[in-house]
Amino acid sequence: MRTLVIASGNAGKIREFQGLLQHLPLDVQPQPEGMDVEETGSTFAANARIKAKAVATTTGHWALADDSGLSVNALGGAPGVHSARYAPTDPERINKLLSALSKTSERDAQFCAALCVAAPDGSVLIEVEGRCDGRITTLPRGEGGFGYDPIFEVSGTDLTFAEMPLSDKKAHGHRGRAFALLEPRLRALLS
């Protein structure tokens, strides 16, 4: 069984990937404790590539990285690649975003997820991107998920990611859509 290291320190993201990958012949591990890779890319894809290559070369195993974030039309695409650093904590990020939108009715937004699998020699094995359209709610709703999930209502569902069961989030979400593109290519690499 091949080891695949998830290039993230985010416990919620690691759990989500473990769930998505559970039916593949992989030993899914989190990245080494205390490892921090600086995300210097200007796009989600560039940041995912930076993280996957760094973790793969450090651990000697394949690494899967994602860079994902929320882009809000009324904010010129912000927070974008700075989604995780928009404020120190999830509640502060949510409050800052809702505050920034308080004077506008334009609430359209997109979640984007770029996934990259890299090998220990630093080569990129797979790169894909998934996207989910929606809108920012005026108040947080739901108990599930993490990050901006309580304020992102998925187009056509009337539900935020935080209100959805994991199976629905997987089907509708940007990471789930990116994973649907990644999975067959990963399965082919494993066979």
Rank of each mutant, 00 (worst) to 15 (best):
K103I: 01
G60T: 14
E106W: 01
A46E: 15
F146P: 09
R2S: 13
L20C: 03
N95Q: 15
A100L: 06
L190D: 05
P184M: 11
V128N: 12
P30W: 03
P120H: 08
L189C: 08
L97V: 06
G156W: 14
P120R: 10
P184W: 05
E33L: 10
L97W: 09
V124F: 02
R93M: 02
N73H: 11
R107Y: 01
V5N: 08
D158W: 00
G80Q: 05
I136T: 01
V128Y: 10
P25R: 06
L125R: 14
L125A: 15
W62S: 11
R93W: 03
I136M: 09
K169L: 03
F146H: 09
C116F: 07
E106T: 12
S102G: 08
E143R: 14
Q110S: 11
P91K: 13
E129M: 13
N10F: 04
L125W: 10
K13Q: 08
S99K: 10
T104I: 03
G12N: 03
R141H: 14
S102W: 00
T40H: 08
I136V: 15
N73Q: 14
A56V: 14
M164N: 08
W62R: 09
F44L: 13
G19Y: 11
I126D: 14
C132M: 13
T59C: 09
D158A: 11
G176T: 07
N95R: 15
A162C: 02
I136H: 08
L125I: 15
M1D: 13
M1V: 12
R15D: 08
A45C: 07
S68L: 05
G19E: 15
G80L: 02
Q31G: 03
A114E: 08
G12T: 00
V55L: 12
D67Q: 07
A180T: 13
T3V: 13
D149M: 00
M35F: 11
I151E: 05
D66S: 11
N95L: 06
V37S: 08
S71T: 06
A54P: 13
A46Y: 09
V81E: 02
K170C: 07
G80S: 01
H172Q: 14
S83D: 05
V154P: 02
L181S: 10
G69K: 01
